[in-house]
Nucleic acid binder design. Structure first.
Length: 214
DNA sequence: TAGGCCATCTGGTCCT
DNA sequence: AGGACCAGATGGCCTA
């Protein structure tokens, strides 16, 4: 894998989460959480959990003002309200864990995609958006190569006049050649990038010169 | 220091 | 009801 410095942070503990958020690890490879189950352990109580800023302030104030059942409906009502609050908090934390897990899986898939994409230099790391864009163009280029190779085998150049796959790879308007640097590719009018519904989204490149974030 | 990228939290919505 | 998915907000880290 790429950057293994980041631990999967197994616990569903808020404290750990906050720590992880502040991690100084430059290696950003998210790596899968060790298991889906183990993240949903101890988020029951909000007693000790630092909790995110908003939540923390909210639950703190609720807890304080409610202590003796002032106002509202007496101690019992206060306890009920508190229980409801805890239940909500507990559900929120569970949802947070699931969401975190989901994003980890998404990132793992993205990493797997990065692994099969050629980069130069080899250990360069594409960003998420770059990975998606490059993969899109890369697949298009490979498909085009297959198509042209098939056409070449069948006979003379097709209606598009492409003599060989090679010329398509290296042509001025072509998509990235697999043998060349993937970062050198440009948009082709015929390429998926060029015909994408969101021209802005696909930008004018397949993949930029890599940043070294390791 | 500004801007880019990222992880996480959060509330809303949809689905099972 | 609970889980999955999504998008906005927030804050940290890194690089130019």
């Amino acid at each position: 894998m790429r950057g293994a410095a980041e631990s999967p942070a197994p616990a569903g503990d808020d404290e750990l989460l906050l720590l992880r958020r502040r991690r100084a690890s430059p290696a950003r490879s998210p790596s899968l959480p060790s298991s889906a189950g183990e993240e949903e352990e101890e988020e029951e109580d909000d007693e000790e959990a630092p909790a995110p800023p908003g939540e923390a302030a909210l639950s703190l104030s609720l807890r304080r003002g409610r202590g003796r059942g002032r106002g509202g409906g007496g101690p019992r009502a206060a306890r009920t309200a508190e229980a409801a609050q805890r239940l909500r908090r507990s559900r929120r934390l569970k949802a947070n864990n699931r969401e975190r897990n989901r994003m980890h899986h998404l990132n793992a898939a993205l990493d797997a995609l990065r692994d099969v994409l050629p980069t130069f230099p080899e250990d360069a790391r594409l960003t998420k958006i770059e990975t998606l864009r490059f993969a899109h163009n890369y697949i298009w280029a490979l498909t085009e190569t297959l198509r042209l190779a098939g056409a070449a085998r069948l006979g003379p150049p097709g209606p598009d006049g492409s003599p060989s796959p090679a010329s398509s790879w290296s042509g001025g308007a072509a998509s990235p050649a697999p043998s060349a640097s993937p970062y050198a590719c440009t948009l082709s009018p015929g390429s998926p990038a060029g015909s994408a519904s969101e021209p802005e989204a696909w930008g004018g490149r397949c993949a930029p010169p890599p940043r070294r974030r390791l």
